[in-house]
């Protein structure tokens, strides 16, 4: 197992290197020059000297290969570079927002699991009844409804409800407060975006739970458990669920990596200053250094999650052994 993890860690390197290569050259495909775009964007007269200074600042005057070397070398020295827009170190910009996005991702996953497991189980146990159909419709709708629109609708609902009950409209606060300082304030802020994104993720997980449960419920040992007269509740919880959980856990863990994509949109709707919003702003400002590093962060999280999933798999199912 230990050897397997080490091997997988080494296998991450080519993927990360390929991603770095791809992102680096994608950001430089543009015919224009980031400095010219920036100066043109501010509406000032683009003075060639100013452009040259700007290029020098960003290291754009050096050959591509040297720039790429600097980009990769930065990972070994811990220097992620400077944002082209705010001129702050990228590590600082990311550090500022990482906590919020991480907490939101964890809360979203919790919402998704809390919805998906009970719904998936009941849907499988009551297969082909109206409950099953209702759950399936609910989960198909979850895949179709865009989470940003659901977010807008949640805000609208909150406004209407608070207007009717409290007399004035209430919207989730915008400024992030640490859960250790003000747990309730933190919760009321983040639970709504977590629900908006979590519903979508629960939809996939619900379908997975349902089909995994259906498969397990047909197994011989379930029939044995029934034949020996076990209570149905015990059969579902102990015998069936434990075995059905494996693919569900995998799915949820994989989705966790993709969650970052979902957060890009939700943070925009709820005006949360997280990594997703930072990414959208960076794209809008054509802040290439920042986009580059944020994409690399996402890829790193994705690759690392995949490794964790595989290790988790072996840990959950003793039959799986990695050489």
């Amino acid at each position: 197992m230990y050897a397997y993890v080490v091997k997988r860690l080494f296998l991450m390197i080519p993927t990360l290197f390929g991603a770095a290569l791809l992102v680096f050259f994608l950001m430089r495909l543009l015919p224009g020059d980031p400095c010219e775009i920036r100066m043109a964007g501010t509406g000032q007269y683009a003075d060639p000297e100013a452009i040259a200074i700007c290029q020098k600042d960003l290291g754009l005057d050096k050959p591509r290969i040297v720039q790429f070397g600097g980009f990769i070398g930065g990972y070994f020295t811990g220097d992620l570079g400077v944002s082209m827009w705010t001129h702050q170190p990228i590590a600082y910009e990311i550090g500022l927002r990482f906590k919020l996005s991480l907490q939101l991702a964890i809360m979203t996953t919790m919402v998704a699991v809390a919805l998906a497991l009970p719904l998936g189980i009941i849907s499988a146990v009551k297969q082909d009844t109206w409950i099953d159909y209702a759950v399936r419709t609910f989960s198909i709708a979850g895949i179709a409804i865009p989470s940003f629109w659901l977010g807008i609708m949640i805000i609208l609902g909150l406004l209407i409800v608070t207007q009717a009950w409290l007399g004035e409209g209430w919207m989730p606060p915008i400024n992030y407060v640490s859960p250790f300082k003000d747990p309730w304030g933190n919760f009321t802020q983040l639970i709504w975006p977590a629900v908006a994104t979590g519903y979508r993720y629960s939809a996939v997980a619900t379908r997975m739970t349902r089909s995994a449960m259906l498969e397990v419920l047909r197994e011989d040992y379930i029939r044995t458990a029934r034949a020996k007269g076990l209570v149905e509740k015990l059969i579902i919880n102990r015998h069936a669920l434990k075995n059905a959980l494996l693919p569900v856990v995998t799915l949820i863990a994989i989705e966790f990596a993709f969650l970052i994509g979902g957060l890009v949109v939700t943070e925009q709707v709820f005006n949360l200053n997280g990594l997703g919003k930072l990414f959208v702003d960076a794209v809008g400002n054509q802040d290439f250094t920042l986009v580059q590093q944020l994409v690399m962060l996402v890829v790193l999280i994705f690759v690392a999650t995949n490794l964790v999933v595989d290790v988790l798999y072996a840990w959950l199912d003793p039959r799986i052994r990695y050489a």
Partner: peptide, 23 residues
């Protein structure tokens, strides 16, 4: 397949946004 591996490490929307950032 190695190129596909790399491309698949990008969530859909992140990849799309990165392309829009360039184009």
């Amino acid at each position: 397949q190695r190129i596909v591996d790399v491309l698949m490490a990008f969530p859909l929307i992140i990849m799309a946004l990165a392309v829009v950032a360039t184009l």
